[in-house]
Write a protein that binds this DNA or RNA. Structure first.
Lengths: 147, 147
DNA sequence: ATCTACATGCAACTAAGTTGCAAGCCAGAA
DNA sequence: TTCTGGCTTGCAACTTAGTTGCATGTAGAT
């Protein structure tokens, strides 16, 4: 979820994380995008401005996820996507995965059709959250296909 | 989805697949379970009765998925789960993943809260299907935790 | 000056799945 | 019968995404 208003340094500090250049760059890369990114995409984004090691990236992502600043999404393929965590400004929302090009997009939170409360309490299992993923062909791929 | 009524040999044949012993065993292993299985679980199930190679298993699973007999589900971790494909008797349904033990369970189709038709036509992307996954702690793990 | 904690990097490893190629088998053609 | 082509299976090597172990660097505390 794009967010120019976010102060990444403050976000890191308020979660007890030293705002190192790499952490800030990783969080910024995720925050500036309008869609969740795969680790490889984040790495490319960070590397366009500074040097970062694969392991460091994964460790930073792990930290950010642990603190809730970033959310790790399963994409239906074997690579996770990383998007901004939920806040007032970024409410929980479903995602769309293009099965042709693998790009994941965020959908309107209004589209999230699940009343999680209705689902809790059925049986004794504890439901923590729901993950709704639509799959199909994205606009770009659909256009290319019909050309 | 458990199904004692299914005739696995006929299912294979009606989809143009030679009903070899291994294919039948794989399909049966998936069909007899009440929850989607990871490839490693299917392999263990098949191997309890006959010998099968990893590659052969994945190839058979690939075939079954291609024919729609089996559905490949993303579990939120990096391993796919395989469950029976949708039919009249096995309608589309949401799943539950225990983040503690990794077991995936099938939920009541009634719980699938998405009206896929409402979502089509928004924008120009093509939506093929929805994947709804609840995450939390399963009954077994919840019980162990409170002991 | 040294000690400790944390941040980062490099190399090696892991898990899940895939690819390439060879061997076995069976049906139909010659 | 033998030969052929096509399918099914197996083995080894590879790939991708991510993880672990260990070494180095750097900053602040003692």
């Amino acid at each position: 979820m794009m967010c120019e208003a976010c102060d990444y340094v403050k976000m890191l500090q308020s979660h007890g994380l030293d705002p190192t250049p790499l952490r800030e760059a990783v969080l910024r890369s995720v925050g500036q995008e309008s869609r969740p990114l795969a680790a490889a995409e984040i790495m490319a984004a960070v590397r366009s401005r500074m040097s970062i090691n694969k392991v460091t990236l994964y460790r930073i992502l792990g930290l950010l996820v642990e603190k809730g600043l970033v959310k790790r999404l399963s994409a239906g393929d074997r690579a996770f996507r990383y998007g901004m965590g939920e806040t007032r400004h970024h409410p929980s929302h479903p995602h769309f995965l293009c099965t042709e090009c693998g790009v994941m997009e965020c959908l309107d939170p209004e589209l999230l059709p699940v009343d999680i409360k209705k689902c809790r309490g059925k049986g004794k299992r504890v439901i923590k959250h729901v993950d709704v993923r639509f799959e199909g062909i994205c606009e770009r791929c659909a256009k290319v296909d019909t050309e």
